[in-house]
Design a protein around this nucleic acid. Structure first.
Lengths: 249, 249
DNA sequence: CCGTTCTGAGAGCACTGCTCTCGTCCGATC
DNA sequence: GATCGGACGAGAGCAGTGCTCTCAGAACGG
């Protein structure tokens, strides 16, 4: 059976005439990424096998290397896709001209919802890095989308004067940290007070930390109502930032 | 060279007489765990290779299976050791009869210090789970040590009446969550108010989330003074819990 | 002393990422 | 429209992995 099948090729992926090679290439690449995403969802990041992807799209393993330079590159592309997917979700949830506190809660819930729906992808983004893998520079752009969406809400609230004053004792910030916070302000194009930046960072890391704990089962057998706990924590953190649902617009 | 070496054995691991087989077995097991820990520290969790461990201790790979049932079991034993090491560190830092706010900051710093010193082990505990691996029940005991140490400080403060009242708007907690919080109280043997439990949970997850972000490089190129940022966040979270350095003992 | 148990070595299976060669086919160029 | 180069898929192969099985020798307990 495999003895004749002259040469190779069009076992399915036939170009079917026009469109040209480029179109076929794009299509097969998309198939490979799809298969990778599927396998990522079921097996997890470390279980992603290029050979299995090849089997999935009906090719021999070496042929996949025509489209993807290495397993790491495939991983990188999937990571970027995942960052973009999460980023888009959060941005959508954060949009609108509702009260910043509402937007913040909605964005946070979007993070958790996406994570629960795509646990392996979330852990690929925010869990342990894959062993020999170093994220290339292409990822840092998409990687900041979810974060920027969250901090953007705080920025909007600050500009609108809707941030309640924080407890005075949170004021002092160690001086070496101030340069970092200044850099964050510059990246955001704002001038948020130091204590707001610290509180927002705490809220950001709290959110992703709790979701990570939920996904990895750290709270197993103790917490059963994860959504409610998440909401309660996010609301508390939002208040710490100064986002109160009952404050001015 | 390898043609004669009659039979096997004492290529190094010779029992050297008495002590018996059990002693030799314990010693070799310890060597294997040591090698595993070393490899874990350098290669990371997913890169832990049983064959490399075997080479490290001067055995052939199949011989290691006399001492460790599988790679996963080796991983489990290393995980338990890591939880215990971190737990002991945090407990030590949390001990003493200083002000609860001081103890909390010290314990938090201990978490971060240990994590920075043992990044791969920390990520093994709190990062993505290894693909085909499911943590067995043996781990849940040691796994709760660091958490119990942190919550214990809050409990002590509450019993001593040293917890400042929280902002009144944090009060309402969704009813399904109350059962979870009640379970936590029972596990701790206390009756902390709901909002304190929520705040403590937020602080707990914030802490581990930020440390995880630092280790995985999420804050790379933005944050440079990780220790200072960590301190600032922890202090803010402690105040959210009601732990103020200037309150009653 | 002898038989049971324990132990390490070696071969082997199925799998992985990746490289190289080879024959074919497509498509742009002359 | 024929031709030549580049793209492509298949297959073999290398080095590595986890794990199993068999085998012979060593250690132990009776």
């Amino acid at each position: 059976m495999l003895s004749f099948r002259l040469g190779m090729g069009q076992t399915e992926h036939m170009t079917t005439g026009k469109g040209g090679r480029a179109r076929a290439r794009a299509q097969i690449t998309a198939e490979i990424l799809d298969a990778g995403r599927r396998q990522l969802a079921t097996e997890g990041a470390a279980g992603l096998s290029l050979r299995a992807v090849a089997r999935d799209v009906g090719m021999v393993s070496s042929a996949v290397y025509r489209y993807v330079a290495s397993r790491d590159e495939l991983l990188t592309r999937l990571i970027i896709e995942a960052y973009d997917a999460l980023g888009a979700t959060v941005e959508r949830a954060a949009a609108g001209d509702r009260h910043p506190a509402d937007r913040f809660l909605a964005a946070a819930r979007a993070v958790r919802a996406w994570a629960v729906e795509h646990p392996h992808e979330f852990l690929l983004l925010y869990g342990s890095p894959v062993p020999g893998y170093a994220a290339p520079a292409d990822t840092i752009g998409p990687a900041s989308r979810p974060t920027l969406a969250l901090f953007g809400i705080v920025t909007d609230a600050h500009r609108a004067g809707a941030l309640a004053p924080r407890s005075p004792s949170e004021a002092a910030v160690a001086s070496p940290l101030r340069s970092d916070l200044a850099a964050v302000n510059q990246a955001l194009g704002t001038d948020l007070p130091d204590d707001v930046l610290v509180a927002a960072t705490a809220a950001w890391t709290q959110m992703f930390g709790l979701v990570g704990f939920e996904l990895t089962g750290q709270t197993r057998n103790v917490v059963h109502h994860h959504a409610e706990l998440f909401d309660a924590c996010v609301v508390a953190m939002a208040e710490m930032i100064g986002l109160r649902a009952d404050s001015a617009p």
